[in-house]
Amino acid sequence: MREWLGQYKYRGNERYGLLLGLMLDRAYIALKEEKRSALLSQKTLIIHSSWSADLLVPVPVSDSRLRERGFNQAERLADVLSKRRKIPQLPLLIRTHHTGKQSFKSRAERIADMKHAFAENPAVTAQFADWMKRKVPLNRPVRIIIVDDIYTTGSTIRACADIVQQMGSDYGYRVEVYSLTWARS
């Protein structure tokens, strides 16, 4: 897995993109089944036992990382999932500053780096509000999945989730945030 990720992310071998995306799709199926089972065990009405995500949000990369790689690997993985499962994707977040390669940092350094690394993407804020009004019933939370390639300490996902939850709250919606990553370190 380390070799595949290295080939894809650092060496620009994009043929791995679909394969990694399909593996992430299997993780989505497992999440969906887990949530469906949880709803059934709570004796929730059958009408609500069909769980699915409402929106995918890829973790953004910094401008310098985007120039270096030529693509955002989380966005590409989310593209595969979006197409296969017909789940819309919105770039709700932007990276506020370049944090350097996290793979060379300790857990404490990663957590500190991620605290203020993300912000709401002003280019899609109005689109997000409009989408929620049209697509999400008020009687349940908005189900948002944050997509990334690798989970190490959870600091990236937590930082992104905090902002996404605040965005939903700003418009009067409850938000459930989930994450899907291709690998765990």
Rank of each mutant, 00 (worst) to 15 (best):
L18P: 07
L18R: 13
L20S: 11
L20A: 14
L20K: 07
L22F: 14
D25I: 04
D25G: 12
R26N: 08
A27M: 05
Y28S: 02
Y28D: 01
I29N: 00
I29E: 02
A30D: 03
E33T: 09
R36N: 14
R36L: 05
A38T: 05
S41F: 04
Q42I: 02
T44D: 08
T44S: 08
L45S: 12
H48T: 13
H48W: 15
S50R: 11
S50I: 11
S50F: 15
W51G: 05
W51F: 14
D54K: 06
V57G: 07
P58D: 08
P58G: 07
V59T: 13
P60I: 08
P60K: 05
P60H: 08
V61A: 01
V61T: 01
S62K: 01
D63I: 09
D63W: 08
S64I: 02
L66F: 13
L66V: 07
E68P: 00
E68Q: 05
R69N: 05
G70L: 10
E75Y: 06
E75R: 10
R76Y: 01
L77T: 09
A78V: 11
D79E: 15
V80N: 13
L81R: 08
L81S: 10
L81V: 15
L81A: 12
S82Q: 12
R84C: 12
R84T: 15
R85S: 07
K86M: 13
P88C: 08
L90A: 01
P91M: 09
P91L: 10
L92M: 07
L93D: 11
L93C: 15
L93T: 12
L93I: 13
L93A: 14
I94T: 13
T96C: 07
H97M: 00
H97R: 02
H97K: 01
H98C: 00
T99W: 00
G100M: 00
Q102L: 04
Q102C: 01
S103E: 02
